[in-house]
Computed example of a mutant assay.
Amino acid sequence: MAVDLPDEHRMIRETVRDFCETEIEPIAQEIEDEHRFPAEIFEQLADLDVMGVPIAEEYGGLGGDTLMYAVVAEEIGRVSGAIGLSYVAHTSLASKPIELFGTESQKERWLRPLAEGDYVGGWALTEPGSGSDASDMDTHATKEGDEWILDGTKQFITNASEAGSVLVKAVTDPDARYGGISTFIVDPRADDGFEVTTVWEKMGLNASPTCEISLESVRLPEDRLLGDDGDGWTQTRKTLDGGRISIAALSTGLAQGAYEHAKTYSQEREQFGQPICEFDAVRDTIVDMYRKTERARLLTRQAARKYDAGDPVTRDSALAKLDASEAAREVAEDAVQVLGGYGYTTDFAPQRFYRDAKLMEIGEGTSEIQHLVIGRELGL
């Protein structure tokens, strides 16, 4: 495994890895089978002070950088894609935008409890009809006196059923297109009219709730507007730059976990009087799995370092997300194949990694959208 990390990052990695192997790995399949959000795990992650890794200490975070956050996300993904997904959605989508765009009072009221792990957060952009054109939204907010009134439906929203706050994108000026979208902070537990209408049964990642939410005349005070009216799409693009690094890190973790299971099995399983790793076909498969995982890790950490340096990162984050998500699916599929019949059973982890990995090629922009983004960055 690559060791190009500062000492502090390595220490955090080892602490989180030990926790993941001790507390998460033993229940990873159980919570998936039960479709249960493991609130107790997130409480323990809060006790480890990693629910706000890239958030400033003054707002309750750890004060780490994006590289440190990527390392933590990778370690969680290495044992549970579902916990990893809820974790990165909470951090990069629900928390970081408040730090980047919120007022001091908003940071104290809404960011601190997220960073300290009092509850998880959500981010509501996608709608039932919007697909990859996220700007094509029907959810709207109208100003009435000193209140905003939200109406609409959001789809595929991670953590919504468990969240203490959700950042909701809504149209405030229908004629302004990208310039007419704004972001609002909604409290699912207190704001009348907010309802989780569906928690989806999915191919994988079922310990991470994916929800449809309805907003019906949700009245919000003026101070729930994040940033200025019309800033929503600019905020979204900045958020997705960081969010794609999150998915790249989570994907790298999934690939790492699948690779490790396949490698260990290939060294222990014997056929025709020898470990199967000594057969060329299996050995070459394991080597390719390692190569793809290392490549994904390098691209992810490159994007994280550029983000931390304040450099433009759209191309790098899209490239890392594209490569790592496809690597996760390919490596997980190979892990199932290496284990043969056992790989298809829920007694072994590769089938879970395989199902979980597919979402990585869809969420935070599909692979096709990443090609589009990278092409534009290359001037094509």
Results as ranks from 00 to 15, higher is better:
Tyr119Thr: 12
Lys143Asn: 01
Pro128Ala: 14
Gly117Leu: 06
Glu116Leu: 07
Glu147Cys: 14
Glu116His: 05
Glu147Met: 12
Ser132Lys: 07
Asp146Gly: 05
Tyr119Ile: 04
Gly121Val: 02
Gly131Met: 07
Glu116Pro: 02
Gln106Tyr: 15
Ser105Val: 09
Met137Pro: 02
Gly121Trp: 01
Gly145Glu: 00
Glu116Ala: 14
Gly129Gln: 07
His140Trp: 05
Ser132Ile: 15
Ala115Met: 06
Leu125Asp: 00
Leu111Trp: 03
Ala141Gln: 02
Trp148Arg: 03
His140Tyr: 02
Asp151Leu: 01
Tyr119Ser: 14
Gly117Trp: 06
Ser130Cys: 13
Gly145Leu: 00
Glu127Asn: 12
Trp123Ser: 10
Ser135Gly: 07
Leu111Met: 06
Trp110Asp: 14
Gln106Pro: 11
Thr142Ala: 12
Thr142Lys: 14
Glu144Asn: 00
Pro113Ser: 10
Ser130Met: 09
Thr126Phe: 09
Pro113Ile: 12
Asp136Asn: 08
Thr142Asn: 08
Arg112Asn: 09
Gly152His: 01
Trp110Asn: 13
Gly117Lys: 09
Pro113Tyr: 04
Ala115Asp: 00
Ala115Phe: 00
Glu104Gly: 13
Arg109Ala: 15
His140Pro: 06
Met137Ser: 05
Gly152Lys: 05
Leu125Lys: 05
Leu114Trp: 05
Arg109Lys: 15
Gln106Glu: 09
Gln106Met: 12
Asp118Gln: 10
Thr139Gly: 13
Glu147Ile: 06
Asp118Tyr: 12
Ser135Lys: 04
His140Leu: 00
Pro128Arg: 11
Arg109Tyr: 01
Gly152Met: 07
Ser132Glu: 15
Glu144Asp: 13
Asp136His: 08
Thr103Cys: 04
Gly152Ile: 03
Leu125Phe: 05
Leu150Tyr: 01
Glu104Asn: 13
Pro113Phe: 08
Val120Cys: 00
Glu127Trp: 08
Ala124Ile: 05
Ile149Ala: 05
Asp118Arg: 09
Lys143Phe: 04
Ala134Met: 00
Gly152Asn: 08
Trp110Gln: 03
Arg112His: 11
Pro113Arg: 05
Pro128Thr: 11
Glu108Gly: 10
Gly129Asn: 14
Ser105Ala: 15
Glu144Gly: 04
Gly129Phe: 15
Gly131Asn: 02
Leu150Asp: 07
Thr103Asp: 07
Asp151Gly: 13
Gly117Tyr: 05
Glu108His: 06
Ser132Gly: 13
Gly145Tyr: 04
Thr139Leu: 10
His140Val: 00
Leu125Glu: 02
Glu127Phe: 09
Trp123Gln: 10
Ser130Arg: 09
Pro128Ile: 08
Thr139Val: 03
Asp118Cys: 07
Ala134Glu: 00
Trp123Gly: 11
Glu104Val: 14
Asp133Cys: 02
Gly122Met: 05
Asp133Glu: 01
Gly152Leu: 09
Trp148Ser: 13
His140Phe: 11
Ala115Thr: 00
Ser105Ile: 10
Glu116Cys: 13
Arg112Asp: 07
Ile149Phe: 01
Ala115His: 03
Lys143Asp: 04
Ala141Cys: 11
Asp151His: 11
Gln106Asn: 12
Thr139Asn: 10
Ser105Cys: 01
